[in-house]
């Protein structure tokens, strides 16, 4: 089967600084794939390239066979790629329920509507999704008043609302306690599995990576260092060298 996402020779430079240097990358449908590497490796840049958020990306990114490398973010989203951000983004002055409702309305493509029925229906589904991500009790809270972990859950749910084929999660557990991390990632993996979603996530916690990912790609200084199963990656001498070198 052809890969869901296939990147070839993807390059992104900021002036003379090359953030991504000719990345080749394939993602199989239904796969849970972790992107790891030291800070500055280009992981978030790569995610942003796929999501259409960076101008001046060179090379090819094909999604379901179509070139998406130079589309606008909204167009990429409509084709079935949803993303969360490293620092979670949501509509801060709205309640969790309003955020989720907005996500469903945007997903419906009928944002210009004045229909109360559409709003009621979206709100109904939003309530269900809040329950799914464990936020039913916080439905009325403004996002600005939510904890970091709850914001990450909300953002994940909002992305799910669009029913994307591919979920890009940029450090979904950053800043969370170990317990929270495992809770969230179990939720993510379960939801992805149930709905047949493909998952590409950036993660620093190796325990989480080993537990969730089926494949791992290691990036260093804008290039792919190694790719393989978690077991292969854990045993890879080059990877060990980078990680020991990078963190000590």
């Amino acid at each position: 089967m052809s890969p869901l996402l296939s990147a070839r020779q993807v390059r992104k430079a900021y002036g003379s600084f090359v953030a991504l240097n000719n990345i080749d990358f394939d993602l199989a449908r239904g796969e849970r794939h972790a992107l790891i590497g030291p800070n500055g490796a280009g992981k978030s840049t790569f995610i942003a390239c796929i999501a259409g958020q960076l101008p001046g990306v060179e090379g090819s990114i094909r999604f379901k066979g179509d070139e998406v490398a130079r589309l606008l973010p909204a167009e990429v989203a409509k084709r079935g790629i949803g993303r969360t951000f490293q620092i979670s983004r949501a509509f801060l002055q709205m309640s969790a329920l309003e955020n989720m409702t907005a996500a469903f309305i945007i997903a419906s493509g009928r944002w210009a509507s004045l229909s109360r029925a559409l709003l009621a229906e979206a709100e109904d589904r939003a309530g269900g999704m809040l329950a799914t991500v464990g936020l039913a009790a916080r439905a009325g809270s403004r996002v600005a008043d939510l904890s970091l972990g709850d914001r990450k859950r909300l953002e994940f749910g909002m992305v799910l609302a669009g029913d994307p084929d591919l979920l890009l999660l940029d450090e979904p557990t950053a800043g969370m306690s170990i317990k929270e991390r495992h809770h969230l990632m179990e939720l993510v993996a379960t939801r992805a599995e149930e709905a047949g979603k493909t998952l590409l996530f950036v993660e620093h916690d190796i325990d989480v990576v080993l537990k969730i990912a089926q494949r791992v790609t290691v990036m260093v200084r804008g290039a792919v260092l190694a790719a393989g199963t978690p077991v292969e990656i854990a045993a890879n001498a080059q990877v060990q060298a980078v990680y020991l070198g990078g963190h000590h």
Partner: peptide, 27 residues
């Protein structure tokens, strides 16, 4: 009426975080 409609919600969404709105598929 506008404010309490899907359109009103979309306008608020873009106002509050255009990146999030864009990543969800809103231009």
């Amino acid at each position: 009426r506008l404010v309490a409609s899907p359109l009103g919600l979309a306008i608020r969404a873009v106002g509050q975080d255009r990146w999030r709105a864009e990543a969800l598929g809103l231009a």
